[in-house]
Amino acid sequence: MLTAAFSAETKDICWTRAFCNKLKGDEHVEKGKGRKWFIFFCAAPAIILFTIFMVLPTLNVFRMSLFRRSAYSPNEEFVGFENFAKLFADTNFIRSMQNTILLIVVVTIVTFAFALVFAGILSREKIRGQNFFRVIFYIPNILSVVVISAIFSAIYDTNNGMLNSFLSLFSPEKVAIMWKGESLVMTSLIVAMVWQAIGYYMVMYMASMASVPESLYESASLDGAGRVTQFFKITIPLIWTNIRTTLTFFIISTINMAFLFVKAMTSGGPNGASEVALSYMYKQAYTNSSYGYGMAIGALIFIFSFALSAVVNKVTERDTLEF
């Protein structure tokens, strides 16, 4: 009886075979009894917190998208896919989706091009003050989106903005471009988002570029390959895995960042010209209290972002290069 309990318990504590053998005949094995409780007390709080505030709300997004619930009819009423059917006829939603896709495409391409080129320069060339530049470029990443939005509002202000008065230096008349007007608001948003994201990705690529062996570049220059060729033929292919992962994550994060920026900077205005998918969801679900409808938007974007990441992941698949 004792031996049976003994072997069951020792198996639990054994991390390695050698240690197991050591334990046999050890009286301290008694401690194995506490093991289950130890694991329980360690893991339970995290699992409970995670379940209450992440798993259940996520399931609720999908469940509620099939119900009608609003401030006036607080009792849920099952409506099936009615919310989704309504979505595809909602021109405001379609516009917000278009804006989201525009942001994903343009912000991704611009940020990645700049981040890669700058990282390539900073990690390849012997630049004085290299660390200084790195520190500066990372600053936008530590600022709250609310702060960045307020800064860009000061830049874009029509009458006393930094940008317009800077442009006025080069023009005989006072420049009064409405940067947050209906026609330019998306461009302004893109600039702010790129400003925020470049540094982060640059630092990330610099780290992975540092692991590319110097000898490859040396032999490439002996063969007469220039900087640009080296960049495209050596650097990019060798850090491709990293680029690919960041790209996938970037798509998910752009959808979220677009929401944060729009909420703090434009509130979707003017006239919904800068509304993005998640800000429209928030507007419907929180401000308008059409919870079911809002959650249908949320569920759709959730699936959309995953599908898009999967597609990007598939399209960018290359054979991994060893070095």
Binding site: A46, M64, N256, M295, I301
Partner: peptide, 21 residues
């Protein structure tokens, strides 16, 4: 695996359900 999956859930999606809860 659950915790790993949690990496992909952004709070922006679930903030309204948390609020309603």
């Amino acid at each position: 695996t659950c915790f790993m999956g949690g990496l992909f859930i952004n709070v922006n999606y679930i903030v309204v359900p948390i609020f309603l809860m």
